[in-house]
């Protein structure tokens, strides 16, 4: 964050009872939502905010579960292929290195970032902010972690990867015996867990009236 902290003359009282639509700038009153409800902007129809059916403890549990599944998905082979007596295992790590070695380094970098690095960072940051929220005072890095989560969201592509794997498995069936392995199932479960996590309104973690975060430098 390279911006100075808010200057007194522009700084200004917060309006906790209001919500501004991110998509059209319309101002609305902020009603309390029941779990599972969502509020849409009446002007443009975009989602204003929602309340997940999951509370923070459930989120924390899901995050831990997702981290475990993440390790499994990356440690175990996704598919194996048998042809001419040779069995080849496909893991995410071997995929990245194979892509790197065959001259498409950019693709290797994209796959490593969007399927491994970003989801891992996302889950770690979720763990961090949810645990930070359980404490009395927020750590100084809370704001940084929240910004990281917001920026990472669109770049985590586990679900796209899963479908991509399914497509290539079908493409290969004409060449050789291809078998889905445990890693593929783990990626499927990871997709479900990440989708469940994404129903959680990140901003809800700011909203609490508990102590504000220490100013971040």
């Amino acid at each position: 964050m390279n911006t100075p902290f808010i200057e007194p003359e522009t700084a200004v009282a917060a309006e906790p009872g209001l919500v501004v639509c991110e998509h059209c700038d319309a101002v609305h009153q902020r009603p309390q939502l029941a779990p599972g409800e969502a509020a849409d902007c009446t002007t443009c129809g975009a989602l204003l905010y929602r309340r997940s059916r999951l509370d923070r403890d459930a989120m924390l549990a899901l995050t831990v579960a997702a981290l475990i599944v993440f390790v499994m998905a990356n440690a175990m082979p996704i598919v194996t292929m048998e042809a001419g007596g040779v069995v080849t295992q496909g893991r995410l790590t071997t995929m990245v290195s194979a892509a790197w070695n065959s001259g498409i380094g950019a693709v290797a970098a994209i796959a490593a970032a969007t399927v491994f690095l970003f989801p891992l960072a996302q889950l770690t940051l979720y763990l961090y902010v949810l645990m930070a929220r359980q404490r009395q005072t927020l750590p100084a890095d809370f704001a940084l972690a929240m910004h990281g989560l917001r920026l990472l969201r669109p770049w985590s592509m586990v679900e796209v990867f899963l479908i991509g794997v399914l497509v290539s498995v079908v493409k290969m069936t004409s060449l050789a015996m291809v078998k889905p392995q445990a890693g593929l199932w783990a990626f499927g479960v990871l997709t479900i867990l990440l989708t469940a996590l994404s129903t959680f309104e990140l901003r809800e973690l700011w909203a609490d009236d508990d102590p504000p975060p220490e100013p971040h430098r």
Partner: peptide, 8 residues
């Protein structure tokens, strides 16, 4: 992603 796995 599909092509990266095929290559592997």
């Amino acid at each position: 992603f599909a092509i990266a796995l095929l290559v592997t």
